[in-house]
Design a protein around this nucleic acid. Structure first.
Lengths: 140, 140
DNA sequence: CTACCGTGTTGCACGCGTAAAACGAAGTCT
DNA sequence: AGACTTCGTTTTACGCGTGCAACACGGTAG
């Protein structure tokens, strides 16, 4: 079972988040490095998902992101139940999120990511148009 | 600047909490070790405040304690309650991420979310199959 | 007393994350 | 043309956290 020693830290997503945010703010690695006291080299590796950052660096970066640390854990709580993956996002800008994910997916080429993004965007807009006849109804 | 280099991790506090809890439950180090997948030796060192545990072990133990990770950190930023957007997921299973996103999207009906999920999944599998040849981390 | 547990601790080799520095690519300037 | 920056990445050397296994202590039998 859990003997697999699977990591509870979601380094991949943390890295993506950092990069996304950093590029959003148009900062260089060294800029962020200065702000966070995380070296640029380490930052680079984290953004690229290489290796696992240590606790201090994770803390510094989540702090910089203004993100609760819990969010980067696959908090299994009582172990058992497979990490039921929780998603946290500000708004529900789904197509954009999907696109960001695709772009960050290292298993895909840039072309594929773009193609999928476009495909999804079109499909989404069509569907959601049908779903939203009127006011934004609270679905739940 | 690296003026402080102070650790954000309050290891002492974590260690005390673990020990207190463990003794409360009258468990041995090895018991907890089995439950948390943290070796007994490391556990001992953590409880005694020797060294700084790595991120995974901190995560495992705070999870076991059912204690918010923030407690363990000397969070630099004052409590910004609101969360900035980030997505965290166990693995990089993109189609699953998309699906989770869709399900969480309050602008979509359940049917739509499912339909989009399926659509995306199919498209993704086809594309990624073609991409698979070799890891191409060329993104720019 | 000796043998056997179970406890917490620690010596040790290994692996790995780190920061600084070196690197190569791409501008930008004179 | 070159010299200088700035960028992200990679190399390098080093420190240290880790698990395993052995340890010392304390009980409890046999």
């Amino acid at each position: 079972m859990a003997r697999t020693t699977k990591s509870l830290i979601n380094t991949a997503e943390l890295g993506r988040a950092i990069r996304r945010r950093r590029e959003e703010l148009e900062l260089s690695l060294r800029d962020v490095a200065d702000e966070t006291n995380v070296s640029a080299s380490t930052l680079s590796r984290i953004e690229n998902g290489t290796g696992k950052p240590d606790a201090d660096n994770i803390a510094r970066l989540t702090s910089w992101l203004d993100v609760p640390l819990e969010r980067i854990l696959n908090s299994t709580r009582e172990g058992r139940e497979e990490t039921k993956a929780i998603i946290y996002y500000p708004h529900e800008t789904t197509p954009e999120i999907v696109e960001a994910h695709l772009r960050a997916d290292r298993n895909l080429t840039a072309e594929t990511a773009d193609a999928l993004s476009e495909l999804f965007r079109v499909a989404y807009s069509q569907f959601s148009r049908k779903d939203q006849p009127k006011s934004a109804r609270k679905r739940r």
